[in-house]
Amino acid sequence: MRQTYLDVARGAGIILVVYGHVLRGVFAAELVPVGTLGTVLAWTDYVIYTFHMPLFFFLSGLHVRNSLRGTQREFMRSKVRAIVYPYLLWSILQGSVQLAMASHGVNHPLMLSDLLAIGWRPFAQFWFLYALMLCMMGAWTLARFVPAVTQEPMAMPIRGLLAGVAATGLAVGASTQWGILSTTLMNWPFFVLGILVSNALPGWLESNSGNRACVATAAVFAAAVAFAHRFGVATSVWAVPAAFVGIALSLQLSYRYASRQMRYTWLTSIGFASMPIYLMHILAMAGVRTVLMRAGITDLATHLALGTVVGVAVPMVAYILVLRAGCARIAGFPLWPGRSAVAHPQAA
């Protein structure tokens, strides 16, 4: 049985991903005025970036132990199909479009050398898939040398080992500049946290999703964000506490929302489509911004609203059409939940 609140969390999270990229796009296009509004939007950007991608690493870690219990061949095959293939396919597709548009004044022009380097240097939003695959390989390596990682219940010494490995990764990632490897190590603790709490999470949420608990978590999150903002960017080591608390708050609110719904809603559907949205949203929202700019429309609210709506809606429509055509796997998309015994990748 699916845990609906996780789909809600994915849906909310991917909307934040799209909005965050739209927001950075209008900043890059110099559409945000200097003053109070600009300051508020800059803070909004900071808050979103403290936790929205850590949330997806956490969600991905929740189910990795189940796949680790299979054979090595099954594990590798599933991750290549769910992560590596979409990464390569959509990096090439989006990169080709960006190369073609490089002379048309796009915010982030791409060089041919960037496209040829996707084997070791991901670009744009595709860094997440690259880092996620590295996390999967890290989990597989741990399970290979410490098989007890996959056992139920997980022994306390094993939990301590995982926590130590996560802390070490964070320390190395924060103190190095090794490109995607350092970025992966910075997000590794959130992936490991998903592994550690996978069994306890439903019970914790049931006991800690009331009004007081959510307000308390929100207050701690606000304090953690304010602290991080004093010392570094939203993806720095100073923001790690804010990321952990932001993940908790996201799950609490998602659990509350899901528990009050009698059936799947639009937000859960967006969660189902989180991977296609993640893969295609940059092309969709960039197209909207280009059309609006060429039409002479520079209204900030219009850019933010249309960019976000189109960035979510167009990939969802494309996903549905691909599903109906029966070629989801060819496009690098997961099957709709319930249509296959193979769970879709919890990536966005």
Score class of each variant (00 low, 15 high):
residue 243 A to E: 00
residue 51 F to Y: 10
residue 141 T to A: 14
residue 240 V to R: 03
residue 278 Y to H: 14
residue 296 G to V: 05
residue 229 H to P: 00
residue 222 A to L: 01
residue 99 L to A: 09
residue 9 A to M: 04
residue 71 T to F: 15
residue 300 L to P: 07
residue 290 T to V: 09
residue 257 Y to F: 15
residue 100 A to H: 14
residue 268 T to R: 03
residue 169 G to D: 12
residue 176 T to A: 06
residue 230 R to E: 10
residue 232 G to N: 07
residue 11 G to L: 03
residue 128 F to I: 08
residue 246 G to K: 03
residue 45 D to E: 14
residue 164 G to Y: 08
residue 298 T to E: 09
residue 49 Y to H: 12
residue 311 G to I: 01
residue 33 P to R: 09
residue 93 L to N: 05
residue 146 V to S: 09
residue 22 V to Y: 02
residue 178 W to D: 09
residue 161 L to W: 10
residue 288 V to M: 03
residue 344 H to F: 08
residue 173 G to W: 14
residue 140 W to L: 15
residue 189 P to A: 01
residue 35 G to D: 09
residue 213 A to T: 12
residue 90 W to T: 01
residue 177 Q to V: 08
residue 84 V to M: 06
residue 126 F to K: 13
residue 196 L to K: 07
residue 29 A to H: 07
residue 57 F to V: 03
residue 245 V to G: 02
residue 165 V to T: 06
residue 80 V to S: 04
residue 312 V to K: 15
residue 173 G to S: 04
residue 151 Q to L: 08
residue 88 L to G: 05
residue 334 P to W: 05
residue 225 V to C: 12
residue 82 A to V: 02
residue 176 T to L: 01
residue 300 L to R: 14
residue 344 H to R: 10
residue 220 V to Q: 02
residue 346 Q to L: 08
residue 33 P to H: 06
residue 110 L to E: 13
residue 295 A to M: 11
residue 115 L to W: 13
residue 32 V to P: 00
residue 140 W to C: 03
residue 273 A to R: 09
residue 54 P to R: 14
residue 6 L to H: 05
residue 128 F to P: 04
residue 272 F to E: 12
residue 300 L to H: 11
residue 202 P to Q: 09
residue 18 V to S: 02
residue 87 Y to I: 08
residue 39 T to Y: 15
residue 348 A to I: 10
residue 64 V to P: 01
residue 281 H to R: 14
residue 212 R to L: 07
residue 139 A to Q: 02
residue 15 I to P: 00
residue 216 A to D: 10
residue 293 M to P: 00
residue 68 L to I: 04
residue 301 A to T: 14
residue 70 G to D: 03
residue 156 M to E: 08
residue 300 L to S: 06
residue 86 P to H: 04
residue 59 L to P: 12
residue 285 M to V: 10
residue 251 L to P: 00
residue 37 L to G: 03
residue 213 A to V: 08
residue 77 R to E: 07
residue 76 M to Q: 05
residue 92 I to L: 14
residue 309 V to E: 13
residue 123 F to G: 08
residue 113 S to P: 00
residue 172 V to E: 13
residue 116 L to F: 12
residue 259 S to A: 07
residue 287 G to H: 08
residue 327 C to E: 02
residue 213 A to E: 09
residue 152 E to F: 10
residue 126 F to H: 14
residue 244 F to G: 01
residue 223 A to Y: 11
residue 274 S to C: 14
residue 252 Q to W: 12
residue 64 V to N: 02
residue 124 A to P: 12
residue 125 Q to H: 14
residue 271 G to Q: 07
residue 70 G to H: 15
residue 24 R to G: 07
residue 305 A to D: 01
residue 252 Q to F: 10
residue 172 V to K: 11
residue 200 A to T: 15
residue 209 S to F: 08
residue 224 A to S: 06
residue 169 G to W: 03
residue 263 R to V: 00
residue 348 A to L: 11
residue 244 F to T: 01
